[in-house]
Design a protein around this nucleic acid. Structure first.
Lengths: 231, 231
DNA sequence: GTTTTTTTTGACCAAACGGTCAGGTTTGTG
DNA sequence: CACAAACCTGACCGTTTGGTCAAAAAAAAC
């Protein structure tokens, strides 16, 4: 399946390139990508029910029938968008390892999450929207892939706690707070920018946000020594 | 008088009861409430675009034309649901006052937010959904009411910081993190319960969640003295 | 009791929707 | 070049949607 993030033609790739140009497969991938991007941003803006296949087609500069030619049904297209997103979402967490320095590993994790928030806000919104409405298309993944990953990494944090390297904290809930705190800047950006009194969240705001989240995580884990009563 | 299956008659209330029974106004209020509740839960489950007025009517046990009689259009009904929610949402924040004890005031605020999350999950979801999709119906409120309130309360936190009563932290972003961290337990409950490996978030989970959020807020503000390097 | 106002509702629309399809075009193959 | 396979798309279709309406029922006013 085409990745949603590659924009260039790319005449190479691993698949069997028969005879000359992979002109056909190439255009297919290009169109699929274009449709997926248009769909992602449409679903992010209006939700599943509020998005029409016609709108997606128009945004992708293709006739509606073409969209159906590539993805069959609206639901299948939506599923393709979701699949694309979930793997991205899970990635940064895998990096957390037992022999890492806790402060460094957690900081890096927050930064990765924050980068995702900034670079793929539509993806974050589609994911949020799906969760919000019951995640029927995603439930299995959550109960298996995500749960296993979280259980694993919660184990890492618990080891750190046992070793006295971080303060006792419920690791699973800490992850929930990190997810919520980072993604809120994508999912609820309207609220954020309204409160900040700006037309959009800018670089400085994102820096302040990231700093605050990191301060929060490290403080919660007892990795930031400055106490209000210590100065 | 008491028709069909209503649980409590309620002959009181403050409004002008003309002549005899406020039978008319009473039933109107009852029907409106029923429609609003049905609408809130429907919009929470399926979003604005995914909800049909017929589904709302059915959930409210009324013919569809009746829903339109009371609220005119689907959009007007949605707006009514939203208005209902926003005031609820803003309330707990007003309680934060400059001469409060910071730890107590912040703890109470988190607890209020958490209670809202537990008691009105559909309201939280509708609100989240609206923000997610641009908050066209809510933007003005956000830019005025919410912004003013946050600016005011950020001032309180800044005073506390200046007085050395809490550690330096960006107050506005701290609020963002509190909102995100509490509401995630309503908005993304499917994800939470999937990761916890339970069919639903139970009392113990909510307690752990609340404890973790409070630990996070107080730590971030330097109000929890136990440092990992201090024992 | 009679009239007026408000409420209720089944039946009914025009518009918009997801999806289909026949038939034309392009690309790959021998 | 001839042929086949894959691709493209305008036109179309059955269903569902938000919304309307006339006429009946209920309540209030006189």
């Amino acid at each position: 399946m085409a990745s949603i993030s590659d924009s260039e033609p790319r005449p190479d790739d691993s698949a069997q390139i028969q005879h000359e140009v992979g002109n056909r497969a190439n255009k297919r991938r290009l169109n699929e990508t274009q449709i997926l991007q248009a769909a992602e941003s449409a679903f992010a803006e209006r939700g599943y029910g509020g998005t029409t296949t016609a709108a997606i087609a128009k945004a992708a500069n293709l006739p509606k029938a073409n969209v159906h030619y590539y993805f069959g049904t609206k639901k299948a297209l939506y599923q393709a968008v979701l699949d694309n997103i979930l793997s991205l979402w899970l990635e940064p967490m895998r990096d957390i390892q037992e022999d890492d320095d806790p402060a460094a590993a957690l900081t890096k994790y927050v930064q990765s999450k924050m980068r995702y928030t900034r670079e793929r806000p539509s993806a974050s919104k589609v994911f949020a929207n799906e969760l919000l409405h019951g995640a029927a298309q995603l439930e299995d993944h959550l109960k298996t892939d995500l749960k296993e990953l979280v259980d694993d990494k919660a184990g890492v944090l618990n080891t750190w706690i046992k070793q006295g390297r971080i303060k006792p904290v419920d690791p699973v809930h800490l992850f929930f707070l990190i997810w919520a705190s980072t993604q809120t800047y994508a999912d609820f950006d309207v609220q954020i920018s309204a409160v900040l009194g700006k037309p959009a969240i800018d670089d400085a705001d994102f820096k302040a946000a990231e700093d605050t989240v990191i301060q929060m995580v490290l403080s919660t884990c007892g990795l930031l020594s400055t106490d209000v009563n210590s100065g």
